[in-house]
């Protein structure tokens, strides 16, 4: 039974699934209200919710912030995998600390203070997920470009989203070759399981040998094509920058978004006051 279950989990967490989730996350949500917002406003919004919670200790306010970021994450339709990674991250950071603290005579107070910490971590992470996963890569890189981030980075972001599906497919094919032609050690006993794990790690490592050669073959054409398309020429031309960024426009929608966020934050403080009294 457990064997079957772990088998099916392993099946799900295949490269195929991974590729699907990352693509979904990148491109599957470009029609959400969040994705339509001006990337500059969103980046500033992230700056607020990524930093301010660290300065607060009020559980009510933090809870309010947390709820807001949960809502925005929901609206941005983030892929489940990303949320899973997020959950793992938060749990491993605070859950573990709590368990350890029990050894040092920790009690419910410890739990409460840990809850505050968890809220902070979670709010910041969700804010970053909303902005970086919710925006489509091109708008995100335009936003970063506007703030003066080097052009190379913004190109890298766009290119990463282009190349990722190709790379994933290639890796998947190589791993498949290993699975089909190789033979993994039996994993019934504990020793077998360890051997199996080592075999899998080795296979992933060795897969990078063919992957490196195949990618090298590709990157030559890519770089030549970039040259022909005048990429190098453009990176020093401010007029190109201006044309690129002229699509950014902050208007009513952004104003409403900012106003709603500010109102909610204010409300949180007010409620906290009332409850505090």
């Amino acid at each position: 039974m457990i064997e079957k279950l772990s088998e099916s989990v392993m099946d799900k967490v295949s490269i195929d699934f991974l590729r699907d989730q990352v693509l979904k996350n990148a491109y599957g949500n470009d029609d959400t209200p969040i994705a339509a917002l001006d990337p500059r406003v969103l980046l500033l919004w992230y700056l607020f919710f990524g930093i301010v919670p660290w300065f607060l200790n009020d559980v009510v306010v933090l809870l309010g912030f947390f709820v807001l970021t949960v809502v925005t994450t929901r609206v941005a339709r983030v892929a489940p995998l990303v949320l899973f990674v997020f959950a793992i991250g938060v749990l491993s950071q605070t859950g573990y600390t709590f368990v350890v603290s029990l050894f040092f005579e920790g009690n419910l107070d410890t739990l409460a203070s840990l809850l505050v910490l968890t809220l902070k971590v979670a709010t910041c992470s969700l804010a970053s997920i909303t902005v970086f996963s919710g925006l489509d890569p091109d708008r995100l890189s335009n936003g970063l470009l506007w703030f003066g981030v080097p052009e190379r980075l913004s190109f890298s972001i766009a290119f990463a989203y282009r190349i990722l599906p190709i790379l994933m497919e290639e890796l998947q094919n190589i791993l498949l070759s290993y699975r089909l032609r190789g033979r993994a050690p039996a994993h019934d006993t504990l020793m077998g399981k360890i051997r199996w794990l080592i075999y899998q790690v080795k296979v992933v490592m060795m897969s990078f040998y063919p992957l490196m050669l195949n990618t090298a073959k590709r990157s030559r054409t890519t770089v030549e094509a970039l040259e022909l398309k005048g990429y190098r020429y453009a990176s020093t031309n401010t007029k190109v920058l201006k044309i690129k960024l002229s699509s950014l426009r902050a208007g009513r929608r952004e104003a409403i978004f900012v106003a709603a966020s500010v109102a909610w934050v204010a409300l949180c403080f007010v409620v906290s006051r009332i409850v505090g009294l």
Binding site: Y27, P137, D138, A158, F159, Y161, R162, T222, A225, L226, L228, K229, G230, Y231, Y233, A234, N237, K239, V240, I243, K244
Partner: peptide
Amino acid sequence: VRPTVIDEASFSCLNFA
């Protein structure tokens, strides 16, 4: 080299401003 079709088609024109 670009993620979307129109982006790819217009990339060189953008680069030449």
